[in-house]
Design a protein around this nucleic acid. Structure first.
Length: 901
RNA sequence: GGGGAUGUAGCUCAGCCGGGAUGAGCGUUCGCCUCACACGCGAGAGGUCAUGGGUUCGAGCCCCAUCGUCCCCACCA
């Protein structure tokens, strides 16, 4: 046993301990039929990422659960890995290339991918190292990457399988197009932001009647692609126009007036222009009314011109165009303009033609890309989709039937809502970094070949001229397979059989739709089983003002810096104190400091115990002469073990932590250690064995209960404290035992604590210096109470600054001028009469009297209430009667005292 | 337009099954370098539990309404 420094210094210790754990293989999990498995798959952080507070919280929660279960004897697998994050990584790589004056096109696909892999080599391990400094006890030997060979196999397997079942299809449909990233994105990747826009009123001349039909739009530039105008069939204002046509201004094309319920009579003029190629609603109307689709935008945000028209015409004429491909308009004078420029030009021309009406300001939600935040352009585009309805159904059922449970429960709704409203999932991306779609097209006959193996000839016509689909898959497609692709699926590995389904998924509420739901339907569809049984949802870490931490605000706090200054334990603990499932929390340095202080407190309590162990070794066997104080703290520990285990099993991690905190600091350190000191410092005391045994047992219990939360300090103390076990992290979780339940001793010590507090308060009020000891006479008519004080006189005296402690049945024989402290069970007298300021003393006593009278009134109000006596449970009534008796006896003591003064 | 969360001490938050708000940390006041710890010890002050109703013997907790704050979802031209 070595001398520990006075203050705990995490820096010198954490790295060493982590390396040691890793070297000893404590994080490793293997198939072990002797044990029950417990598995968590880590939400794979992006390789572009740096550890931020969100990761820190997410991973601390997982580490706590894993360490807890490991100590409970489960074979625990925490499966780590990273995500290739296609769109985010590609953007970063493109950005660094841009600084060198390079573009994707200049490098070509191969060259670009080389760079992307180099990026991943360089930065992919960075976040892993950062997770290690947090103390994450994952099985790093099993680390995976969403783009590694195994994951690629899983992706191909799923893609081909779903394609064969008809659940993956390719089609020209309305998708969310990001002109900045130049790729389609899924519905889930669109974020809506409220923006200021304008509502432009435009007049379309009616061919048959010559009247000018007024309608309104927020996007006048799309009018070039209008193929109809819609009115509501019920709308009497336009009944006379049924079957008529309008002349599309600027384009001078005749288009029909169609009847469709999409036209809302309440809104605007009740007339809507229909642009099937550039608006999702209009797309639907177009489908219903059989309208042509005319595309007027290019995929990079410009107006189409002659070249685009020619290309599309050729494509349409080739006979290989898929159904639903739009025509392309040569926008003439507008061709080549950006959509913004086109808007201005179109408005100016309408104005000139006298067809522009009023312009109203309008706030509306605009879809933006979740990565680059550019405005999304709805476009018709040929993409791959997953048919969701058949997959969603079992995924909804699994949750409804309780096979998968959300914690807290309220997120079940969020999930079900998402899952039952979801539309087909657009999974192709016009990116290079990612899983390339395993589809080939025959250049000669147009056949589509979807296959796990690269085909050499077309099975339909035998041609060898096959072109592979250039697109890659949505990142989330591979993330969705993560719980089983990491375990070897589609191979039937022993790991898959043993660890799958996994147990707990820990993640934030912000990716329930993106990720959680997709893992659930994927797991069910491909493995036939749920991917996990519990989804533990946590909130966000916000800044001290409650704002979301973000790069643009610059209010993010670097967890690594916090760890550097205060230690990983302090950060972990701060993230857990007051942490309730699903609720956001705020970061504050004050709370980091409080956590650091707690670690230091535990450190010093341990130091105290170890110092004494040198003189008085801890007995191996439980001593027979445990004192009342020993039994009290052991009994409390016993309850604590039970409560904390229960809370942790219910995922109430914050509550569990606060209970250990409270016990360790306010019971063990503040009271028990103080009670024990006189026994250790008094040579003659014969209960030292009992004291040392209890100190050691309680300390070890506390360390173990704390270990999942603050792994480093607890380990450092543990290995210095004893040498029978190599590490706390593989030691066994404490179990409560009935033989350590001592309710009588608990009650007795509470009486003593009450008395000590009463004496201290009195002395503090009277400004009596600690150095001035006084005789304390404990007066109680209750022989048992007197016995309690007699038995514990040695420490009671110290704690209450007594020169000696006497007990007697009544105050008979005591000087009249002694001061008194009144508790529920006894009155304590001290000969400090010379210090008494009678007026002040009266005031103090009267205040106390008033308080008691208040309590008595409250108690009486209940006890005199017939209904209370009739309907309240018996126990409650008895409790209340006992309280009343206490108040009465205390009041009597105070009354007596007031009379003497 | 739907759905959810939240409103408790100056600040940040706990509060289990409805049963005295001696709730926690920080801050604050007073006294202490008491031989584990000043990252500490002891003693205080500080709360109409957002508002208004209801259920109940009894409501911070359950029900309804209102106000405030914050999220998520939704194709409103």
């Amino acid at each position: 046993m070595k001398e520990l420094p006075k203050t705990y210094d995490p820096k010198s210790i954490e790295k060493k301990l982590y390396a040691d754990w890793e070297a000893k293989g404590y994080f490793r999990a293997s198939v072990n039929p002797e044990k029950k498995p417990y598995t968590i798959v880590m939400p794979p952080p992006n390789i572009t990422g740096q550890l931020h507070m969100g990761h820190a919280m997410d991973n601390t929660l997982q580490d706590i659960l894993i360490r807890f279960k490991r100590m409970q004897g489960y074979e625990t697998l925490w499966q780590p890995g990273t995500d290739h994050a296609s769109i985010a990584t590609e953007a970063k790589v493109v950005e660094t290339m841009r600084k060198e004056g390079l573009t994707k096109e200049m490098l070509g696909r191969e060259g670009f991918l080389e760079r992307a892999w180099a990026w991943r080599e360089k930065y992919g391990s960075r976040i892993v190292e950062q997770l290690k400094t947090l103390g994450s006890s994952c099985d790093w030997e099993k680390e995976r990457f969403t783009l590694d060979e195994g994951c690629s196999n899983a992706v191909k397997e799923v893609f081909v399988n779903l394609y064969e079942q008809g659940l993956i299809y390719r089609g020209s449909r309305m998708v969310n197009w990001c002109p900045c990233c130049r790729t389609s994105i899924s519905d889930a990747e669109v974020e809506y932001e409220e923006k200021d826009g304008k509502f432009y009123h435009i007049f379309y001349p009616v061919l048959e009647t010559g009247e000018k039909l007024e309608l309104a739009t927020t996007r006048p530039e799309t009018m070039l692609g209008d193929t109809a105008v819609a009115v509501n069939p019920e709308d009497p204002r336009y009944a006379h126009l049924h079957g008529c046509h309008v002349v599309l201004p600027l384009v001078n094309k005749v288009i029909p007036i169609v009847l469709d319920e999409h036209a809302d009579m309440e809104k605007g003029t009740g007339v809507v222009k229909i642009t099937p190629a550039h608006d999702p609603n209009d797309f639907e109307v177009g489908n219903r009314r059989g309208l042509p689709r005319v595309r007027v935008f290019t995929y990079d945000g410009h107006m189409t011109g002659a070249a685009e028209k020619r290309a599309q015409d050729e494509y349409l004429a080739s006979g290989r165009a898929s159904a639903g491909e739009p025509e392309v308009l040569d926008c003439g004078k507008y061709a080549g303009m950006t959509t913004d420029e086109a808007r201005k030009a179109v408005l100016a021309d309408l104005e000139e033609a006298g067809l522009l009406g009023k312009i109203e300001p309008l706030k509306h939600d605009v879809g933006t890309c979740y990565r680059c935040h550019h405005v999304i352009e709805p476009m018709i585009s040929r993409q791959w989709f997953v048919k969701m309805a058949p997959l969603a159904e079992p995924a909804v059922k699994a949750v409804e039937e309780g096979r998968i449970r959300f914690v807290p429960e309220r997120f079940t709704r969020t999930y079900l809502n998402w899952m039952s409203n979801t539309r087909d999932w657009c999974i192709s991306r016009q990116l290079w970094w990612g899983h390339r779609i395993p589809a080939w097209y025959c250049a000669d006959c147009g056949e589509t070949i979807v296959s796990k193996e690269d085909p050499t000839v077309c099975p339909a016509c035998g041609s060898a001229h096959l072109d592979r689909d250039p697109d890659t898959l949505d990142t989330w497609f591979s993330s969705a397979l993560w719980p089983f692709s990491t375990l070897g699926w589609p191979a039937k590995t022993p790991e898959l059989a043993y660890f799958y389904p996994t147990n707990t998924l820990v993640t934030g509420y912000d990716i329930i739709g993106f990720w959680v739901s997709r893992m659930i339907f994927s797991g069910l569809a491909y493995t036939g089983d749920i991917p996990f049984d519990t989804v533990y949802i946590h909130g966000l870490v916000r800044d001290a003002q409650g704002r979301k931490m973000s790069k643009s605000l610059g209010n993010g706090i670097d967890p690594l810096e916090v760890i550097d200054r205060y230690g990983a334990d302090a950060l972990r603990m701060m993230l857990l104190t007051g942490n309730a499932p699903g609720n956001d929390m705020r970061f504050s340095y004050e709370r980091v400091e409080a956590s650091r202080n707690f670690a230091n407190k535990i450190w010093n309590a341990s130091r105290f115990i170890m110092m004494n162990m040198e003189k008085y070794p801890v007995p191996a066997e439980e001593p027979a002469n445990l004192t009342q104080a020993d039994k009290w703290i052991l009994s409390k520990a016993n309850t604590l073990i039970r409560d904390v285990t229960e809370n942790m099993e219910k995922f109430e991690l914050g509550i569990a932590l606060s209970k250990v905190y409270d016990y360790a600091w306010n019971e063990f350190c503040d009271w028990y250690i103080e009670m024990v000191k006189p026994r250790l410092y008094n040579e003659a005391d014969e209960t030292k064995d009992a004291a040392m045994w209890t100190l050691n047992r309680v300390l070890v219990t506390v360390l173990k209960l704390l270990h999942p939360y603050i792994p480093f300090v607890t380990e450092e103390i543990f290995i210095n404290l004893q040498d029978s076990e190599p590490s706390i992290m593989v030691s066994s979780w404490p179990v409560s035992e009935d033989r350590f339940s001592f309710p009588e001793d608990e009650r007795a010590v509470e009486i003593l604590k009450d008395a000590v507090r009463a004496v201290r308060t009195l002395r503090s009020d009277m400004n009596v210096a600690p150095s001035r000891r006084a005789r304390v006479t404990v007066v109680s008519p209750d022989a048992e109470v007197r016995e309690i004080f007699r038995k514990s006189a040695h420490f009671f005296g110290t704690l209450a600054f007594a020169s000696e402690v006497l007990t007697q049945e009544s105050r008979e024989g005591l000087e009249e001028k002694e001061v008194s402290a009144v508790t529920a069970d006894a009155v304590l007298y001290m000969p400090l009469a010379d210090l008494v300021d009678v007026a002040k003393e009266r005031e103090r006593l009267n205040k106390e009297k008033a308080r008691l009278q208040n309590e008595l009134a409250r108690s009486d109000a209940m006890l005199l209430n017939e209904n209370f006596l009739k309907r309240a449970p018996e126990q409650k009534i008895r409790d209340e009667q006992e309280k009343k008796a206490k108040y009465l006896s205390m009041l009597a003591s105070i009354e007596e005292r007031l009379q003497i003064l």
